[in-house]
Design a binder for these strands. Structure first.
Lengths: 149, 149
DNA sequence: CTAGAGTCTCAAGTTCACTTGAGATCAAGG
DNA sequence: CCTTGATCTCAAGTGAACTTGAGACTCTAG
């Protein structure tokens, strides 16, 4: 084991906490690309752990896999990302995170206000209308409006 | 129309932005309870709009319908909630919202730090381990770890 | 060399949160 | 009375994100 610094899918599973099938699924989604042994078993680079951890992090922010794919689009798949690559991607996330924090804080303040003044008219007051752009936007299937981070 | 202050499902749909089938679904979930006309059509109280708006709000925070059900559990279904009822429920949400904001802020700071120092070891550093309680918690099906707000 | 653990692929199942469809019924204007 | 639009119920379909199962192959310790 550890002849080179390549990892089996089981090792990656232990280090990330992701199940083995999930890692295969994520490879299929394009988040990582594993090389293969002559026999056909996947071998992952150490940097893939970082990649997968990042996927999990963005997921905890409420992003869908598709959004995560977009966010990580300019991390090179064919080689281990350099610090500069990570910096670029993470900086974008930082901005979105800031925005989301600000939005939640705004919502909290409005909640305080509505509760405090006793109006409670969530449907008419700013509290609900804060999301106007999103509701009823497209005509097609909407499905879940996830955390949207 | 508007003989009493009861609303048809279409009117509720227009005022909340929810589709008609979704409102029926939410009734089935127990978020609202509509009375019926002799003919069998649903009639909603005005306070049900507030209820549904609140559901949408919590959903935008990333809560699942089950979590929302739990959060709204002590809003009385059989009568229009009073200001005091809303205050109680909203106060609980306010706390969770505060916690979530703090958690996101912490994550942002750690992201800054990791990016800044160049370590980028999301898997070992505090950034990822921040969520330790959640990962690999139950042995059964986990499915999506949604926004978790 | 062999037993057992780990992997492989591919297909099908599952949960959540709805949406879509079919066919019947209700409600109100002309 | 008739038509048109809203509503009803019930069943089945959908998309996302995985999980589970079946059957075969690989790898490594003894």
């Amino acid at each position: 084991m550890r002849s080179t610094d390549l990892l089996s899918i089981g090792e990656v599973s232990e280090r990330t906490g992701l199940s083995v099938p999930t890692i295969r699924y994520y490879e299929q989604c394009g988040f990582v690309r594993a090389s293969r042994t002559p026999g056909g078993s996947r071998r992952f680079a150490r940097s893939d752990i970082r990649r997968l951890s990042f996927v999990m992090l963005l997921q905890s922010f409420g992003l869908s896999l598709e959004e995560i794919r977009a966010a990580m689009a300019d991390l090179p798949l064919e080689r281990a990302p350099r610090a500069a690559d990570w910096r670029r991607v993470s900086a974008g996330m930082r901005d979105r995170l800031d925005q989301r924090i600000a939005e939640l804080a705004r919502t909290r303040d409005m909640l305080d206000q509505c509760i405090g003044c006793g109006c409670l008219s969530l449907s008419e007051c700013a509290l609900h209308n804060r999301g106007d752009r999103a509701w009823r936007h497209g005509s097609g299937a909407q499905y879940v409006l996830r955390g949207r981070f």
